[in-house]
Write a protein that binds this DNA or RNA. Structure first.
Lengths: 215, 215
DNA sequence: TCGCATCCTGACCATATGGTCAATACGAAA
DNA sequence: TTTCGTATTGACCATATGGTCAGGATGCGA
Protein backbone atom coordinates (compact mmCIF):
# COMPACT_ATOMS: atom_id res chain seq x y z
CA UNK A 1 0.00 0.00 0.00
CA UNK A 2 1.51 3.35 -1.08
CA UNK A 3 2.25 5.69 1.78
CA UNK A 4 0.32 8.57 0.28
CA UNK A 5 -2.76 6.44 -0.08
CA UNK A 6 -2.61 5.40 3.54
CA UNK A 7 -2.26 8.97 4.74
CA UNK A 8 -4.98 10.09 2.45
CA UNK A 9 -7.20 7.35 3.83
CA UNK A 10 -6.53 8.55 7.34
CA UNK A 11 -6.82 12.27 6.77
CA UNK A 12 -9.86 12.48 4.58
CA UNK A 13 -10.62 9.01 3.41
CA UNK A 14 -11.95 8.17 0.00
CA UNK A 15 -14.15 10.84 -1.39
CA UNK A 16 -17.15 8.71 -0.64
CA UNK A 17 -16.18 8.27 2.99
CA UNK A 18 -15.96 11.93 3.85
CA UNK A 19 -19.64 12.17 4.53
CA UNK A 20 -19.65 9.14 6.80
CA UNK A 21 -16.53 10.34 8.57
CA UNK A 22 -17.78 13.84 9.28
CA UNK A 23 -21.20 12.63 10.30
CA UNK A 24 -19.53 10.38 12.86
CA UNK A 25 -17.43 13.31 14.09
CA UNK A 26 -20.49 15.49 14.44
CA UNK A 27 -22.64 12.81 16.03
CA UNK A 28 -20.02 12.05 18.67
CA UNK A 29 -19.68 15.71 19.56
CA UNK A 30 -23.43 16.20 19.54
CA UNK A 31 -24.00 13.23 21.82
CA UNK A 32 -21.65 14.68 24.38
CA UNK A 33 -23.00 18.21 24.21
CA UNK A 34 -26.66 17.15 24.28
CA UNK A 35 -25.92 14.97 27.29
CA UNK A 36 -24.11 17.68 29.20
CA UNK A 37 -26.31 20.64 28.33
CA UNK A 38 -29.65 19.18 27.28
CA UNK A 39 -31.31 19.88 23.95
CA UNK A 40 -32.22 23.43 24.84
CA UNK A 41 -28.87 24.21 26.40
CA UNK A 42 -26.83 22.75 23.57
CA UNK A 43 -25.75 25.12 20.82
CA UNK A 44 -24.75 24.26 17.29
CA UNK A 45 -21.69 26.43 17.76
CA UNK A 46 -20.52 24.37 20.74
CA UNK A 47 -21.08 21.11 18.91
CA UNK A 48 -19.21 22.50 15.94
CA UNK A 49 -16.27 23.57 18.08
CA UNK A 50 -16.15 20.19 19.76
CA UNK A 51 -16.23 18.45 16.39
CA UNK A 52 -13.57 20.82 15.05
CA UNK A 53 -15.73 22.01 12.17
CA UNK A 54 -17.27 25.35 11.26
CA UNK A 55 -20.89 25.67 12.28
CA UNK A 56 -22.13 26.02 8.72
CA UNK A 57 -20.64 22.64 7.98
CA UNK A 58 -22.92 21.01 10.52
CA UNK A 59 -25.92 22.33 8.66
CA UNK A 60 -24.52 20.86 5.49
CA UNK A 61 -24.77 17.37 6.96
CA UNK A 62 -27.74 17.85 9.26
CA UNK A 63 -30.37 20.33 8.14
CA UNK A 64 -31.52 21.32 11.61
CA UNK A 65 -30.54 20.96 15.24
CA UNK A 66 -33.55 18.74 15.72
CA UNK A 67 -32.53 16.41 12.90
CA UNK A 68 -29.11 16.04 14.48
CA UNK A 69 -30.66 15.37 17.86
CA UNK A 70 -32.99 12.80 16.36
CA UNK A 71 -30.07 10.87 14.91
CA UNK A 72 -28.27 10.92 18.25
CA UNK A 73 -31.30 9.49 20.03
CA UNK A 74 -31.83 6.84 17.37
CA UNK A 75 -28.21 5.72 17.64
CA UNK A 76 -28.60 5.25 21.35
CA UNK A 77 -31.84 3.42 21.02
CA UNK A 78 -30.23 0.90 18.71
CA UNK A 79 -27.29 0.25 21.00
CA UNK A 80 -29.73 -0.11 23.83
CA UNK A 81 -31.87 -2.61 21.99
CA UNK A 82 -28.87 -4.65 20.95
CA UNK A 83 -28.41 -5.69 24.56
CA UNK A 84 -31.59 -7.66 24.01
CA UNK A 85 -29.64 -10.43 22.41
CA UNK A 86 -28.12 -11.18 25.81
CA UNK A 87 -31.59 -12.06 26.94
CA UNK A 88 -32.46 -14.42 24.15
CA UNK A 89 -31.56 -18.05 23.94
CA UNK A 90 -30.82 -18.20 27.64
CA UNK A 91 -31.78 -21.36 29.44
CA UNK A 92 -32.93 -19.55 32.56
CA UNK A 93 -32.88 -16.32 34.53
CA UNK A 94 -29.40 -16.76 35.97
CA UNK A 95 -27.92 -16.93 32.53
CA UNK A 96 -30.29 -14.57 30.72
CA UNK A 97 -30.72 -11.83 33.28
CA UNK A 98 -27.11 -12.13 34.34
CA UNK A 99 -25.95 -11.53 30.79
CA UNK A 100 -28.43 -8.72 30.32
CA UNK A 101 -27.22 -6.90 33.43
CA UNK A 102 -23.65 -7.24 32.27
CA UNK A 103 -24.50 -5.96 28.80
CA UNK A 104 -26.42 -3.00 30.15
CA UNK A 105 -23.70 -2.14 32.66
CA UNK A 106 -21.16 -2.19 29.85
CA UNK A 107 -23.32 0.16 27.84
CA UNK A 108 -23.59 2.47 30.85
CA UNK A 109 -19.84 2.53 31.05
CA UNK A 110 -19.12 2.87 27.34
CA UNK A 111 -21.95 5.17 26.33
CA UNK A 112 -22.77 7.33 29.34
CA UNK A 113 -23.60 10.33 27.17
CA UNK A 114 -26.02 8.36 25.06
CA UNK A 115 -27.77 7.03 28.11
CA UNK A 116 -28.21 10.55 29.44
CA UNK A 117 -29.62 11.84 26.19
CA UNK A 118 -32.06 8.98 26.17
CA UNK A 119 -33.07 9.64 29.77
CA UNK A 120 -33.60 13.33 29.12
CA UNK A 121 -35.64 12.57 26.02
CA UNK A 122 -37.96 10.27 27.98
CA UNK A 123 -38.16 12.70 30.89
CA UNK A 124 -39.32 15.41 28.53
CA UNK A 125 -42.15 13.23 27.33
CA UNK A 126 -40.33 11.56 24.43
CA UNK A 127 -41.25 14.27 21.90
CA UNK A 128 -38.96 12.73 19.31
CA UNK A 129 -39.13 8.99 19.89
CA UNK A 130 -42.68 8.48 21.10
CA UNK A 131 -43.39 6.22 18.14
CA UNK A 132 -40.42 4.02 19.03
CA UNK A 133 -41.78 3.62 22.53
CA UNK A 134 -45.16 2.59 21.22
CA UNK A 135 -43.88 0.15 18.62
CA UNK A 136 -40.39 -1.26 19.01
CA UNK A 137 -40.02 -0.86 22.75
CA UNK A 138 -43.51 -2.15 23.48
CA UNK A 139 -42.91 -5.25 21.37
CA UNK A 140 -39.51 -5.81 22.92
CA UNK A 141 -40.97 -5.49 26.40
CA UNK A 142 -43.80 -7.88 25.75
CA UNK A 143 -41.42 -10.42 24.30
CA UNK A 144 -39.15 -10.40 27.35
CA UNK A 145 -42.08 -10.41 29.71
CA UNK A 146 -43.22 -13.60 28.05
CA UNK A 147 -39.78 -15.13 28.49
CA UNK A 148 -39.73 -14.20 32.16
CA UNK A 149 -43.23 -15.57 32.64
CA UNK A 150 -42.11 -18.84 31.07
CA UNK A 151 -39.24 -19.06 33.52
CA UNK A 152 -41.71 -18.51 36.34
CA UNK A 153 -44.02 -21.18 35.00
CA UNK A 154 -41.09 -23.56 34.75
CA UNK A 155 -40.27 -22.91 38.39
CA UNK A 156 -36.92 -21.34 37.59
CA UNK A 157 -37.68 -18.20 39.58
CA UNK A 158 -40.21 -16.78 42.01
CA UNK A 159 -43.50 -15.36 40.70
CA UNK A 160 -42.37 -11.77 40.28
CA UNK A 161 -44.27 -9.29 38.12
CA UNK A 162 -42.13 -9.41 34.93
CA UNK A 163 -42.92 -5.80 34.12
CA UNK A 164 -41.49 -4.42 37.32
CA UNK A 165 -38.51 -6.70 37.06
CA UNK A 166 -37.70 -5.20 33.68
CA UNK A 167 -38.09 -1.67 35.06
CA UNK A 168 -35.75 -2.57 37.87
CA UNK A 169 -33.17 -3.89 35.42
CA UNK A 170 -33.35 -0.73 33.35
CA UNK A 171 -33.31 1.56 36.37
CA UNK A 172 -30.38 -0.03 38.17
CA UNK A 173 -28.10 -0.41 35.17
CA UNK A 174 -28.80 2.97 33.58
CA UNK A 175 -28.39 4.65 36.95
CA UNK A 176 -24.65 4.10 36.72
CA UNK A 177 -24.57 6.19 33.55
CA UNK A 178 -27.27 8.79 34.20
CA UNK A 179 -26.19 9.48 37.78
CA UNK A 180 -22.56 8.82 37.09
CA UNK A 181 -21.60 12.26 38.28
CA UNK A 182 -23.28 11.71 41.64
CA UNK A 183 -21.69 8.30 42.00
CA UNK A 184 -18.31 9.77 41.15
CA UNK A 185 -18.78 12.50 43.73
CA UNK A 186 -19.62 9.90 46.36
CA UNK A 187 -16.54 7.98 45.27
CA UNK A 188 -14.18 10.72 46.48
CA UNK A 189 -14.54 12.46 43.13
CA UNK A 190 -12.94 9.58 41.27
CA UNK A 191 -14.47 7.67 38.37
CA UNK A 192 -15.17 4.03 39.18
CA UNK A 193 -12.17 1.81 38.56
CA UNK A 194 -12.34 -1.45 36.65
CA UNK A 195 -12.66 -3.31 39.92
CA UNK A 196 -15.40 -1.00 41.13
CA UNK A 197 -17.35 -1.51 37.94
CA UNK A 198 -17.05 -5.24 38.44
CA UNK A 199 -18.24 -4.88 42.03
CA UNK A 200 -21.17 -2.76 40.93
CA UNK A 201 -22.15 -5.26 38.25
CA UNK A 202 -21.85 -8.16 40.67
CA UNK A 203 -23.87 -6.38 43.34
CA UNK A 204 -26.68 -5.62 40.94
CA UNK A 205 -26.66 -9.15 39.57
CA UNK A 206 -26.53 -10.72 43.01
CA UNK A 207 -29.34 -8.71 44.55
CA UNK A 208 -31.65 -9.09 41.59
CA UNK A 209 -31.03 -12.78 40.94
CA UNK A 210 -31.41 -13.54 44.62
CA UNK A 211 -34.37 -11.19 44.81
CA UNK A 212 -36.28 -13.11 42.17
CA UNK A 213 -35.41 -16.44 43.72
CA UNK A 214 -33.22 -17.58 40.85
CA UNK A 215 -30.26 -18.42 43.06
CA UNK B 1 -66.62 36.91 58.53
CA UNK B 2 -67.54 39.52 55.91
CA UNK B 3 -67.74 38.20 52.39
CA UNK B 4 -65.35 40.76 51.02
CA UNK B 5 -62.73 39.87 53.58
CA UNK B 6 -62.98 36.20 52.73
CA UNK B 7 -62.61 36.88 49.03
CA UNK B 8 -59.76 39.22 49.68
CA UNK B 9 -58.08 36.54 51.78
CA UNK B 10 -58.44 34.06 48.95
CA UNK B 11 -57.47 36.33 46.11
CA UNK B 12 -54.50 38.08 47.51
CA UNK B 13 -54.23 37.14 51.16
CA UNK B 14 -52.90 39.42 53.81
CA UNK B 15 -50.45 41.89 52.50
CA UNK B 16 -47.62 40.03 54.13
CA UNK B 17 -48.59 36.72 52.56
CA UNK B 18 -48.60 37.90 48.98
CA UNK B 19 -44.93 37.30 48.55
CA UNK B 20 -45.11 33.77 49.94
CA UNK B 21 -48.19 33.02 47.87
CA UNK B 22 -46.78 34.21 44.57
CA UNK B 23 -43.43 32.60 45.16
CA UNK B 24 -45.24 29.30 45.66
CA UNK B 25 -47.22 29.87 42.46
CA UNK B 26 -44.06 30.61 40.53
CA UNK B 27 -42.07 27.75 42.03
CA UNK B 28 -44.78 25.23 41.18
CA UNK B 29 -44.98 26.43 37.60
CA UNK B 30 -41.21 26.55 37.31
CA UNK B 31 -40.82 23.01 38.62
CA UNK B 32 -43.17 21.72 35.97
CA UNK B 33 -41.64 23.69 33.12
CA UNK B 34 -38.05 22.92 34.08
CA UNK B 35 -38.96 19.23 34.30
CA UNK B 36 -40.68 19.13 30.94
CA UNK B 37 -38.33 21.35 28.96
CA UNK B 38 -35.04 21.31 30.86
CA UNK B 39 -33.27 24.42 32.07
CA UNK B 40 -32.21 25.51 28.60
CA UNK B 41 -35.57 24.75 27.04
CA UNK B 42 -37.60 26.47 29.72
CA UNK B 43 -38.51 30.10 29.13
CA UNK B 44 -39.45 32.66 31.73
CA UNK B 45 -42.42 33.54 29.54
CA UNK B 46 -43.73 29.97 29.67
CA UNK B 47 -43.30 29.77 33.41
CA UNK B 48 -45.05 33.11 33.76
CA UNK B 49 -47.98 31.98 31.63
CA UNK B 50 -48.28 28.76 33.62
CA UNK B 51 -48.23 30.72 36.86
CA UNK B 52 -50.73 33.20 35.49
CA UNK B 53 -48.46 36.17 36.07
CA UNK B 54 -46.73 38.65 33.76
CA UNK B 55 -43.14 37.81 33.06
CA UNK B 56 -41.82 40.97 34.67
CA UNK B 57 -43.47 39.86 37.89
CA UNK B 58 -41.30 36.75 37.99
CA UNK B 59 -38.22 38.91 37.95
CA UNK B 60 -39.65 40.88 40.82
CA UNK B 61 -39.58 37.79 43.02
CA UNK B 62 -36.63 35.97 41.49
CA UNK B 63 -33.86 38.11 40.06
CA UNK B 64 -32.72 35.63 37.41
CA UNK B 65 -33.79 32.40 35.76
CA UNK B 66 -30.90 30.69 37.48
CA UNK B 67 -31.96 31.91 40.91
CA UNK B 68 -35.43 30.51 40.28
CA UNK B 69 -33.98 27.21 39.10
CA UNK B 70 -31.74 27.03 42.13
CA UNK B 71 -34.72 27.36 44.45
CA UNK B 72 -36.59 24.63 42.61
CA UNK B 73 -33.68 22.24 42.94
CA UNK B 74 -33.20 23.06 46.60
CA UNK B 75 -36.88 22.38 47.31
CA UNK B 76 -36.60 18.96 45.74
CA UNK B 77 -33.44 18.12 47.57
CA UNK B 78 -35.11 18.81 50.89
CA UNK B 79 -38.13 16.68 50.12
CA UNK B 80 -35.79 13.98 48.98
CA UNK B 81 -33.71 14.10 52.14
CA UNK B 82 -36.79 14.02 54.34
CA UNK B 83 -37.38 10.44 53.27
CA UNK B 84 -34.26 9.71 55.29
CA UNK B 85 -36.31 9.65 58.45
CA UNK B 86 -37.93 6.45 57.22
CA UNK B 87 -34.54 4.87 57.46
CA UNK B 88 -33.72 5.94 60.95
CA UNK B 89 -34.74 4.20 64.11
CA UNK B 90 -35.60 1.03 62.24
CA UNK B 91 -34.84 -2.24 64.01
CA UNK B 92 -33.69 -3.95 60.82
CA UNK B 93 -33.63 -3.89 57.04
CA UNK B 94 -37.17 -5.19 56.56
CA UNK B 95 -38.57 -2.30 58.50
CA UNK B 96 -36.05 0.38 57.53
CA UNK B 97 -35.56 -0.34 53.85
CA UNK B 98 -39.21 -1.22 53.44
CA UNK B 99 -40.25 2.15 54.82
CA UNK B 100 -37.62 3.92 52.75
CA UNK B 101 -38.81 2.33 49.54
CA UNK B 102 -42.38 3.30 50.34
CA UNK B 103 -41.38 6.86 51.15
CA UNK B 104 -39.37 7.21 47.97
CA UNK B 105 -42.10 5.68 45.83
CA UNK B 106 -44.57 8.15 47.30
CA UNK B 107 -42.25 11.01 46.45
CA UNK B 108 -41.94 9.67 42.91
CA UNK B 109 -45.70 9.71 42.64
CA UNK B 110 -46.31 13.06 44.32
CA UNK B 111 -43.36 15.01 42.99
CA UNK B 112 -42.51 13.57 39.58
CA UNK B 113 -41.50 16.97 38.23
CA UNK B 114 -39.12 17.61 41.07
CA UNK B 115 -37.51 14.23 40.63
CA UNK B 116 -36.93 14.96 36.95
CA UNK B 117 -35.38 18.33 37.64
CA UNK B 118 -33.08 16.72 40.14
CA UNK B 119 -32.14 13.99 37.69
CA UNK B 120 -31.42 16.47 34.92
CA UNK B 121 -29.32 18.59 37.27
CA UNK B 122 -27.19 15.60 38.22
CA UNK B 123 -26.94 14.42 34.61
CA UNK B 124 -25.60 17.84 33.60
CA UNK B 125 -22.85 17.53 36.17
CA UNK B 126 -24.67 19.18 39.07
CA UNK B 127 -23.56 22.72 38.17
CA UNK B 128 -25.85 24.19 40.80
CA UNK B 129 -25.86 21.69 43.65
CA UNK B 130 -22.38 20.24 43.53
CA UNK B 131 -21.69 21.51 47.05
CA UNK B 132 -24.80 19.70 48.34
CA UNK B 133 -23.54 16.47 46.84
CA UNK B 134 -20.18 16.89 48.50
CA UNK B 135 -21.50 17.82 51.92
CA UNK B 136 -25.07 16.90 52.81
CA UNK B 137 -25.50 13.97 50.47
CA UNK B 138 -22.10 12.53 51.23
CA UNK B 139 -22.78 12.67 54.97
CA UNK B 140 -26.24 11.23 54.53
CA UNK B 141 -24.87 8.38 52.44
CA UNK B 142 -22.10 7.53 54.88
CA UNK B 143 -24.58 7.51 57.75
CA UNK B 144 -26.92 5.05 56.04
CA UNK B 145 -24.05 2.91 54.86
CA UNK B 146 -23.02 2.54 58.48
CA UNK B 147 -26.55 1.53 59.43
CA UNK B 148 -26.63 -1.09 56.70
CA UNK B 149 -23.21 -2.37 57.67
CA UNK B 150 -24.45 -2.72 61.24
CA UNK B 151 -27.39 -4.79 60.04
CA UNK B 152 -24.98 -6.99 58.14
CA UNK B 153 -22.75 -7.40 61.18
CA UNK B 154 -25.79 -8.32 63.24
CA UNK B 155 -26.65 -11.00 60.73
CA UNK B 156 -29.90 -9.34 59.73
CA UNK B 157 -29.07 -9.39 56.05
CA UNK B 158 -26.51 -10.81 53.63
CA UNK B 159 -23.14 -9.08 53.21
CA UNK B 160 -24.10 -6.77 50.37
CA UNK B 161 -22.03 -3.71 49.49
CA UNK B 162 -24.08 -0.98 51.24
CA UNK B 163 -23.12 1.59 48.64
CA UNK B 164 -24.56 -0.31 45.72
CA UNK B 165 -27.64 -1.17 47.72
CA UNK B 166 -28.28 2.54 48.23
CA UNK B 167 -27.75 3.22 44.54
CA UNK B 168 -30.23 0.49 43.72
CA UNK B 169 -32.80 1.97 46.09
CA UNK B 170 -32.42 5.39 44.53
CA UNK B 171 -32.44 4.06 40.98
CA UNK B 172 -35.47 1.84 41.29
CA UNK B 173 -37.69 4.28 43.14
CA UNK B 174 -36.79 7.38 41.16
CA UNK B 175 -37.20 5.46 37.93
CA UNK B 176 -40.97 5.54 38.42
CA UNK B 177 -40.86 9.34 38.35
CA UNK B 178 -38.07 10.04 35.88
CA UNK B 179 -39.19 7.43 33.37
CA UNK B 180 -42.87 7.82 34.20
CA UNK B 181 -43.68 8.69 30.62
CA UNK B 182 -42.11 5.48 29.33
CA UNK B 183 -43.88 3.45 31.99
CA UNK B 184 -47.15 5.10 31.11
CA UNK B 185 -46.63 4.36 27.43
CA UNK B 186 -45.98 0.70 28.25
CA UNK B 187 -49.11 0.75 30.38
CA UNK B 188 -51.37 1.30 27.37
CA UNK B 189 -50.84 5.03 27.67
CA UNK B 190 -52.52 5.14 31.07
CA UNK B 191 -51.02 6.51 34.27
CA UNK B 192 -50.50 3.86 36.91
CA UNK B 193 -53.58 3.33 39.06
CA UNK B 194 -53.51 3.20 42.86
CA UNK B 195 -53.38 -0.57 42.66
CA UNK B 196 -50.56 -0.49 40.13
CA UNK B 197 -48.54 1.85 42.31
CA UNK B 198 -49.02 -0.56 45.20
CA UNK B 199 -47.91 -3.45 43.00
CA UNK B 200 -44.86 -1.52 41.87
CA UNK B 201 -43.93 -0.64 45.44
CA UNK B 202 -44.43 -4.20 46.59
CA UNK B 203 -42.40 -5.61 43.70
CA UNK B 204 -39.50 -3.31 44.42
CA UNK B 205 -39.64 -4.05 48.13
CA UNK B 206 -39.93 -7.79 47.61
CA UNK B 207 -37.08 -8.14 45.18
CA UNK B 208 -34.70 -5.96 47.13
CA UNK B 209 -35.47 -7.33 50.58
CA UNK B 210 -35.23 -10.87 49.27
CA UNK B 211 -32.18 -9.91 47.27
CA UNK B 212 -30.29 -8.79 50.34
CA UNK B 213 -31.35 -11.85 52.29
CA UNK B 214 -33.52 -9.92 54.74
CA UNK B 215 -36.58 -12.10 54.19
C1' DT C 1 -57.23 61.26 54.33
C1' DC C 2 -52.23 60.92 53.66
C1' DG C 3 -47.70 58.82 53.21
C1' DC C 4 -45.08 55.03 52.29
C1' DA C 5 -43.58 50.46 51.34
C1' DT C 6 -44.74 46.83 48.58
C1' DC C 7 -46.33 45.01 44.44
C1' DC C 8 -47.42 45.12 39.42
C1' DT C 9 -46.52 45.46 34.45
C1' DG C 10 -46.17 47.13 29.48
C1' DA C 11 -42.65 48.51 26.74
C1' DC C 12 -38.17 48.18 25.66
C1' DC C 13 -33.18 46.50 24.85
C1' DA C 14 -28.95 43.77 24.08
C1' DT C 15 -27.58 39.50 23.00
C1' DA C 16 -27.40 34.74 21.56
C1' DT C 17 -28.68 31.44 18.44
C1' DG C 18 -30.57 28.57 14.60
C1' DG C 19 -30.40 28.81 10.12
C1' DT C 20 -29.26 30.70 5.14
C1' DC C 21 -26.51 31.65 1.19
C1' DA C 22 -23.36 32.80 -2.23
C1' DA C 23 -18.79 32.18 -3.31
C1' DT C 24 -15.04 28.98 -3.23
C1' DA C 25 -12.14 24.79 -2.94
C1' DC C 26 -11.56 20.11 -3.97
C1' DG C 27 -10.89 15.86 -6.39
C1' DA C 28 -12.26 12.05 -9.34
C1' DA C 29 -13.53 10.80 -13.89
C1' DA C 30 -13.33 11.71 -18.78
C1' DT D 1 -6.70 19.67 -18.48
C1' DT D 2 -11.52 20.20 -18.15
C1' DT D 3 -15.81 19.25 -16.00
C1' DC D 4 -18.95 18.58 -12.49
C1' DG D 5 -20.77 16.93 -8.29
C1' DT D 6 -19.43 17.26 -3.54
C1' DA D 7 -17.73 19.63 0.38
C1' DT D 8 -16.42 24.07 2.84
C1' DT D 9 -17.12 28.38 5.09
C1' DG D 10 -17.36 33.48 6.34
C1' DA D 11 -20.76 36.71 6.54
C1' DC D 12 -25.24 37.65 7.33
C1' DC D 13 -30.27 37.66 9.04
C1' DA D 14 -34.58 37.04 11.67
C1' DT D 15 -36.11 35.75 15.83
C1' DA D 16 -36.46 34.47 20.60
C1' DT D 17 -35.26 35.30 25.11
C1' DG D 18 -33.41 36.97 29.61
C1' DG D 19 -33.46 40.92 31.78
C1' DT D 20 -34.43 46.19 32.80
C1' DC D 21 -37.02 50.13 34.05
C1' DA D 22 -40.03 53.80 34.81
C1' DG D 23 -44.43 54.67 35.99
C1' DG D 24 -48.51 53.23 38.21
C1' DA D 25 -51.62 50.53 41.41
C1' DT D 26 -52.57 48.89 46.04
C1' DG D 27 -53.45 48.82 50.76
C1' DC D 28 -51.93 49.36 55.54
C1' DG D 29 -50.80 52.23 59.40
C1' DA D 30 -50.99 56.83 61.30
Amino acid sequence: MPETARISRIRSGRRTDIRQQNERLILDAAERVFAEAGFGGATMQLIADMAGLPKANLHYYFPTKEALYRRVVQNIFEIWLDAASSFDGAAGPVEGIGAYVEAKMNISRRHPHGSKVWAAEVMHGAPVIQDYLETTLRQWTEGRMAVIQRWIDEGKMAPIDPRHLLYMLWATTQHYADFGHQIETLNAGQPLSDAQWREATESVKQIILRGIGAI
